[in-house]
Design a binder for these strands. Structure first.
Lengths: 333, 333
DNA sequence: TTGAAAGCGCTAACAA
DNA sequence: TTGTTAGCGCTTTCAA
């Protein structure tokens, strides 16, 4: 294994100093045309590629961005939410030459690996998504000096940059739609209690019902997974067999819920109207095309990454960007 | 932002030389008990964490392992195969202190980012999965000196370390089972033609049929996705309406196929028996619990990573490990 | 515009 | 067992 060529080699080959070679490689300002050409030629000839570790050491930057997803792999790779989010983040990174490091929590939750990761300055910045109200996480994040942008409203941390969609309005839109369709006994299946998105969507549901003078007690909790949606639907039907509409806080859970409704011989939307959330491609394709609320995760992720990159450039950015959700009416309601 | 403490600081605090401090931090051999304690105390007091870039520069190692998945994000995050594989790889990495770098191809295929990645010695080793017969990829991989282990039979590269399951036997098991169930007009839905797993499973199907003196022409191609399975099933029924059994090369495709069968009023397994492949959790949970062939991807991935780690240690390992698949009989056949 | 030289934080001979 | 010292490959003053 021949040792890779170094900047020194390039400089020698081009007949210039290492400093000049470095300048050319980085595209840095004023270098005589002739020398630029000479260096570039040498780079090509030798197949030179800068050594990231050496560069990192000298610049005290890593040229990498961490994407923190405090969820176990099993969820990250099964929930389309993350596919969209990571794709969006990647898109924003496209022409920035930075590495993306995906930091997930192990099956046993957030361990000290994250803390080490941050301290080791593996990454110049951090995008945090799907944050839970985890005290350990909050502490680690708080005590870190690494610039970060959250996707979704941060819990337990104030004054931090974030991008979000208005989930309260989303929940309200969905619920109001059910009311407009003439439904009166409207339940909800929520996400995990410790996540901002869950809380806000539920709040939207409650507000819409209260304004209409309807009862807002029919509620079951899920965890944003398909099976949890099915389970929650079962609970709901157990406690309130009279339900005629459900606002489900995610499409995946809605799909699970519909399975259960069908299994009990209930028709959707005739007997029970269902509205999901997220507007996944899956939502439109299922047996019963799902009415749902848009959740522009990809766009959100892209915005977050752009914001982070700007922050790293030293630019001043508003600390909060909020997008508006829209209702997509299909046949499940 | 206070500068992070360096080894120098630790050494000073502990009253030893930098070399000794380094030895203690690395757990390296003989250092007097007293000094070990002193250094450890200093480390704790200062909150010292080694700087990976500096270490990488000095050791000429990155302490990171690349996991190459030449697929677009959209697939990686929607196919449970990758969830299992990455989980397995992670498990093997658990107590090895190494970073995992996930290298995906962009939406437009394998670009030069991978080449750069390898040249930059971002990773000490590489685990390659889901390899296609992509000439660019093959060339890059071939010309790289980085130790690598493939998951699945490598295509276009010889003599490289890999772990695999016996997909020919898998296809044969599935097909033989259909034959044993009395089916005689047995079709297959294959995966992409340029992937070893597809080729091998199809071969198993063909061999089983030929041995039984049955016709092996009923075939349609999919791409391992649910929708492609549905489409392929449609094609099959179009061309051979008499089909009474289908061996589908992945559970996801099998699910899609069953949707189509149901849509056309065909009962599973009464009219058409279906056998999938992969034994995903999903397979057992669906409306029709799926007969399928186990595909211990997680285990495979773990083995691959262990093999790679051993290789990096300079250990000698057999260049090939093959696991055996098993049939799981459920109600779809 | 260029080059010399001093680090960045760590490891690893080598010598003591 | 310990410390001294010379790098690892790059960036970045500073002077010329």
């Amino acid at each position: 294994m021949v040792p890779a060529p170094t900047l020194e080699d390039v400089a020698r080959e081009a007949g210039v100093s290492r400093a000049t070679a470095s300048r050319v490689v980085r595209g840095d300002a004023q270098v005589a045309e002739v020398k630029v050409a000479a260096v570039q030629k040498a780079v090509r000839k030798l197949g030179y590629v800068p050594h990231p570790a050496a560069r990192a050491l000298a610049t005290r930057q890593s040229d990498a961005i961490g994407v923190l997803v405090p969820e176990p792999e099993s969820r990250i790779f099964s929930d389309p939410f993350f596919a969209s989010a990571i794709a969006g983040v990647n898109r924003a990174l496209k022409d920035s030459q930075k590495q993306l490091l995906l930091v997930m929590s192990g099956p046993d939750g957030v361990d000290d690996r994250l803390g080490r990761f941050l301290q080791q300055r593996h990454a110049d910045g951090l995008v945090v998504m799907s944050q839970h109200e985890d005290p350990t996480l909050v502490k680690v994040l708080r005590s870190s000096a690494v610039p970060m942008v959250f996707i979704g409203r941060p819990v337990g941390i104030n004054g931090v940059h974030h991008v979000d969609v208005d989930n309260v309005t989303g929940g309200r839109l969905a619920t109001q739609h059910l009311i407009d369709r003439g439904r009166r006994r409207i339940a909800t299946i929520t996400g995990p209690a410790d996540m901002a998105a869950s809380q806000d969507r539920e709040t939207g549901w409650r507000l819409a019902l209260e304004e209409a003078g309807l009862d807002a007690s029919r509620r079951a909790r899920g965890t944003f997974t398909l099976t949890s949606g099915a389970a929650a639907a079962g609970e709901l039907l157990e406690s309130w067999p009279d339900i005629d509409g459900i606002f489900v806080a995610s499409d995946l859970m809605a799909l699970g819920a519909i399975q259960v409704l069908h299994a009990r011989g209930l028709r959707v939307p005739d007997d029970v109207a269902v509205v999901g959330y997220d507007d996944l491609p899956l939502a439109a394709e299922g047996q019963v095309p799902l009415t749902t609320v848009t959740n522009p995760v990809g766009e959100l992720a892209m915005l977050a990454m752009e914001m982070l990159l700007a922050l790293l450039q030293g630019e001043d950015r508003p600390s909060k960007v909020v997008l508006s959700p829209e209702l997509r009416i299909r046949s499940s309601s």
